[in-house]
């Protein structure tokens, strides 16, 4: 049941060296730097996004993800969802307007998997980068590297998947698009969405709370994914795995690491879902094929290397 959460809006990523990180996310991935703030944070966006930023980089002595934010349709919805979270027993924190530049107030909360999320209704609308609103060209010239189209989703690792599911599904109106069940029927992976995409956010069971697996960016075609792989080699960037296809979502993908060890994905394709679709289930016994459809074998690193 939709409750007014619209889409992933931003992710704040901690990096060990801000200059190296900015170079990675702009020169290699093709994001565009849109601003910096007094705390030294750097704001970035992908070209097709309409708001001012979707990725915020913060220098810290431990890499990982500070929070992921979802945009809701309007202020009334934000007020209602805050009430609903509190009624459900979730502690919320108010982050004032302007804490992130040109972003309205944010309602921050943590979920039992150990991750922080935010809801917000307003962010400066700057329009798609490099194309006009009227009679737009197909794509802008002057993009760098992989030319990432949009920030798409994050995957988090942590415990308490069922309790986390309750908040996202029952309070925030996400629906379960795909899942992995173990032989006892326990859900060990959940792919949740508020859109037609197979995941706007995903969680995989892991005992240690609050771990960040990856932030993912959309590309249009398989050719673009291969080109991304070429760029990863050309720049001697740390690769994880790919290009390959996932069983889960059936997306075509490549994984690599930013200079601080945070995992990134660029991908294309993937299945679609509507709220009347039953969840797609993969068996934990077949996790190799579920994650890497071609190899059908798990890469140990994919399950254990996290920030």
């Amino acid at each position: 049941m939709k409750k007014g959460v619209m889409r992933p809006g931003h992710v704040q990523i901690r990096v060990l060296d801000i200059d190296e990180a900015v170079k990675h996310y702009t020169d290699l991935m093709g994001l565009i730097e849109t601003d910096r703030d007094d705390e030294g944070r750097v704001y970035l966006k992908a070209w097709s996004e309409v708001d001012k930023f979707s990725v915020v980089l913060r220098e810290a002595d431990e890499p990982g993800c500070d929070f992921m934010g979802f945009k809701v349709v309007d202020e009334a919805t934000l007020v209602q969802l805050q009430k609903d979270l509190v009624a459900f027993g979730v502690d919320v924190e108010q982050i004032p307007e302007g804490d992130l530049k040109d972003c309205g107030r944010r309602v921050r909360f943590s979920v039992p998997s150990g991750h922080a999320f935010e809801l917000y209704a307003d962010k400066l609308y700057t329009g798609k980068w490099g194309v006009t609103e009227v009679n737009p060209e197909a794509w802008p010239r002057g993009l760098e590297g992989m030319k990432a189209v949009r920030f798409d989703h994050c995957l988090f690792y942590g415990p308490e998947l069922a309790a986390t599911y309750d908040i996202f599904v029952n309070v925030l109106g996400f629906h379960l698009a795909e899942q992995v069940l173990d032989p006892e029927g326990t859900r060990v992976a959940q792919f949740l969405t508020v859109s037609m995409k197979e995941h706007d956010i995903a969680f995989i069971h892991h005992e240690e709370p609050g771990k960040f697996h990856h932030a993912s960016f959309f590309l249009e075609t398989w050719e673009d994914v291969l080109r991304a792989a070429d760029l990863i080699s050309m720049t001697d960037t740390s690769i994880d795995i790919g290009p390959t296809r996932h069983g889960l979502t059936h997306g075509k993908t490549i994984y690599f690491f930013d200079p601080s060890g945070n995992r990134n994905e660029v991908f294309c394709g993937g299945d679609y879902t509507y709220p009347d679709h039953k969840p797609i289930t993969w068996k934990a016994e077949d996790l190799g094929k579920a994650i890497f459809y071609h190899d059908r074998v798990l890469n140990e690193r994919f399950l254990t290397v996290l920030t």
């Binding site: 060990l16 890499p63 990982g64 740390s238 690491f257 930013d258 200079p259 601080s260 060890g261 945070n262 995992r263 690193r301 254990t304 290397v305 996290l306 920030t307």
Partner: peptide, 11 residues
């Protein structure tokens, strides 16, 4: 063992 190669994961 090889992890992120970026000083981040501790692998």
């Amino acid at each position: 063992p090889v992890g992120c190669r970026g000083g981040g994961c501790g692998y």
